[in-house]
Design a binder for these strands. Sequence first.
DNA 1: CAATGATGGTTGCATTATTAAACTTCATTG
DNA 2: CAATGAAGTTTAATAATGCAACCATCATTG
Lengths: 157, 157
Amino acid sequence: MKRTSLAGDSCPVARALDVFGDWWSLLIIRDASLGRRRFGEFQESLGLAKNILASRLRTLVERGILKMIPASDGSAYQEYVLTPKGRGIFPILVALRQWSEEFDEHPDEIATIMVDRDKGKPVKKLVLYAQDGRVLDAADTALKPRPAAKRARRVPA
Amino acid sequence: MKRTSLAGDSCPVARALDVFGDWWSLLIIRDASLGRRRFGEFQESLGLAKNILASRLRTLVERGILKMIPASDGSAYQEYVLTPKGRGIFPILVALRQWSEEFDEHPDEIATIMVDRDKGKPVKKLVLYAQDGRVLDAADTALKPRPAAKRARRVPA
DNA sequence: CAATGATGGTTGCATTATTAAACTTCATTG
DNA sequence: CAATGAAGTTTAATAATGCAACCATCATTG
């Protein structure tokens, strides 16, 4: 009667949610991508119970989203920073943000906008392109069975 | 001691997660975007308990992600279909999918790839652009306080 | 048109997860 | 070296989840 795991699912959306699809993980990842790295920083920022935070940090490290490094201030404590796999979640955060910007009932309650660092201008909406450069929306897409992986070509003996 | 709500949060990521950030909602939305619309279809596809499904469908309708319509087969049952607000979640599903495609440990277990319907070719990765057309990654972005909303200009009395 | 089965739920109970608070341990500071 | 703080762990209560069984309605068949 455990909470059902999505780990073995064949759907890539489900597989991603299995890794960081719980109530807190994405917010921890958001905080990490904003530069927060200490246990206390996460705890204060998110206001979640410390045991839950400890548990989430542990599994995010196990799953290769975060890694622990010695604290940058020279203290004996450690810090949690995103791995490349963790930084790869950035587009998901952007997509979530843009959905709220577009559909939230109370957009006035949204405190920040994402801008490009150089110019300080708001970023544009994420765009999905076809290989030939056409812009696609949901109706223009379909799902196909994944082709069998190509093996590394073996040099004939 | 209720589960902490993210509804009043000022972060748009948290606000989105408050709407569909639980364990099942995004998968229901994924199914809906694949054309599933009947209670039984969702239940069979997701394998979740019926009471949980009923509860999720109810809140997704409440929150304007799904709407109930009379069944298309003429029967007296009803169906759940995405609203525009629900269809707006599509880029988030794409981003999740692409993260798994790029970082999953066992990509061979992913059953499907997203293609453009016309040509049948895989779609490209989502791209974030600056207003001037430069491609941005996480390090090229920053968050700024949201400017106060412009009031509707009032005609002087 | 009564019986049977499928659809779309609800209810009750067992299990799991989340919370808050107290407690521990080690490191740093005064 | 006592006191404070950081980073957790433990404990107990509450909330969410999962499972199974039940129920109501609609649909189909004899």
